[in-house]
Design a protein around this nucleic acid. Structure first.
Lengths: 328, 328
DNA sequence: TTGAAAGCGGTACCAT
DNA sequence: ATGGTACCGCTTTCAA
């Protein structure tokens, strides 16, 4: 028996309409009435039922967030950013973790679409057509991926990679390896593209080893291959992969960074907790989440501007897995 | 212009009521009609609006999950467990991260209460009275905390700690330190209690150092104090604290585990990625989340059973930050 | 077996 | 400035 608008109306001796106005457009109601209503609201602890409101206004005050795998340390930061920003604008957040299953993602979008004003979707692998078909269901903002004219938040990996390549060449490296993540991942493709471009420009040789799972185990598996190529520096698709290599190198007694320099992407918290700590390209995770919400709210306020993008910058976090170990 | 029940009704040449029945209680509608309706549903891609349904049934099909800090690596696992289990029962999940702010937690509960059938609350520090006052708003299941007769999912830390103490004493340790987390945290209090009991029983001296933040930095800060006590083994409140100590020990050239053994709680992914890898008491994170949903659904199905608990087991993950280093 | 109609908790339009 | 009323999308009596 939660308290409804009628209860408040009765308590304040006004009509439900007046209560509604007091809450939505206080300036349209007489100060005295407003006060009485407000008192009743407080006394009864009335909170409007958002679902009921949404039914008529078409606005739910909710938004959806879909991520492929929350246990990948990259995502909690993004989720947190979304969450925080959403709460600032009084939005609640539906979260779905799809276990890296692109088909689940589409389902989730469809299931959620009626209950949210829009969805923030982090789906690096779903096919473009499917993605586009979802756009009809509800407004969608893509995270870390650009497809067609869909609104998106991405990071400028080209510039980050320029920084990384510059860093490594400055240290004297002339042959560097890249351990790619999932073939279909948009981020991975971007990174490969940028790496080819910037290594070529710098006159440095790029050795691409085989794709691995974007996880610690993937890095462990790739480490020996990397060593066999004889490079003096290696970039992993993400920090987990890089940490896996670090671990395997340690097990084999390969000195980092003396024998080989190691870099990752993301700057997940772990990267500074290991020893040697991992040099990495920091992605603005919470900011990405916040920007996603910003974009979505913008879109809702002004649906004309259906096409709008936000590109964030990443920056190099130099730690001691590259170059000479710092003297303490 | 999403497709509504009326659209389907029109397309199938029946009344909205019949469409509703076809979906909810198919056995009450003639096979032929049922087929026609089903075709229309499929053709139009109709999905009932859950909010509208909830308005009348009183069931939203949503549940809320509140965690203090998603960037603490303990929680993503829990969230994932909740998420997965919820989806199996066709529930959607509202997630709120309260940034370790107990007052925000109460707000969130109140805001969400109308939109969910129940809430899974992970709030180690909120006061008991406040907690109890929230119970009136919506069904609540507590995670990792027991308060009064509220339904809860906890892990049996006493038994885990028994395992840990047995392990350390078996290795010959006679004085061990504990670095506690937040004073008010339920888990921390439980751990202290169990530690006192089991060390006493084993005739081992327990040295309790000052409370620290449940984070990497907290461990770094505590490490020197720990060393000063002259113990040969130390348990951190959680893995982050333990990792912080590991890091500081490495910096000071203190050999782990030769000079001092280190243990943590939680078994977050990092704990096996560092070197030496961290011995830890594994908490069943996803299982905790799943059990939370189970409990909540049980409660909803049978509100009489308002008091019901689930206690999970933790188990020791022995890795090489305790005892003699394994020979490779 | 099916349909008409009422109503869930709100909002918004139209009167007054 | 306020109230009456229709309606949002759906479910659920109640009759037919």
């Amino acid at each position: 028996m939660p308290v409804t608008i009628k209860d408040v109306a009765r308590a304040a001796g006004v009509s439900p309409a007046t209560v509604s106005r007091t809450l939505a457009t206080p300036e349209l109601v007489h100060a005295d009435t407003r006060r009485r209503v407000q008192q009743a609201v407080d006394a009864l602890g009335y909170k409007p039922n958002r679902a009921a409101r949404g039914l008529i206004t078409g606005r739910t005050g909710n938004l959806g967030l879909i991520v492929p795998d929350l246990t990948n340390p990259f995502f909690p930061g993004v989720v947190k950013g979304v969450q925080t920003r959403a709460r600032e604008s009084d939005y609640a957040v539906f979260l779905a973790d799809t276990d890296e299953d692109p088909s689940a993602e589409a389902d989730v979008v469809r299931n959620l679409s009626k209950q949210v004003d829009g969805i923030i979707l982090c789906s690096p692998r779903m096919s473009e057509e499917e993605l586009r078909s979802l756009t009809g269901e509800t407004p969608i903002v893509m995270l870390n991926r650009r497809v067609g004219r869909m609104p998106s938040v991405t990071v400028n990996s080209a510039d980050g990679i320029r920084q990384a390549v510059a860093h490594l060449t400055a240290l004297g490296h002339r042959r560097i390896a890249y351990v790619p993540g999932p073939k279909l991942s948009w981020s991975n493709r971007e990174r490969v593209r940028a790496l080819r471009q910037h290594t070529a420009a710098a006159g440095v040789e790029l050795v691409e080893v085989g794709n691995v799972a974007p996880q610690f185990a993937g890095g462990v598996a790739a480490a020996d291959q990397v060593l066999a190529t004889g490079v003096t520096a290696v970039l992993g698709y993400n920090d987990l992969v890089a940490l896996g290599m670090l671990s395997r190198f340690a097990a084999r007694g390969v000195a980092v960074p003396e024998r080989i320099s190691v870099m990752g992407f993301d700057d997940i918290v772990l990267s500074e907790m290991v020893n040697p700590s991992l040099t990495t390209l920091a992605q603005p995770k919470e900011q990405t989440g916040r920007a996603g919400v910003d974009l979505l709210l913008q879109l809702l306020a002004d649906p004309e501007r259906a096409f709008s993008r936000r590109e964030l910058e990443s920056h190099l976090m130099v730690r001691n897995s590259t170059g000479p170990a710092p003297t303490p």
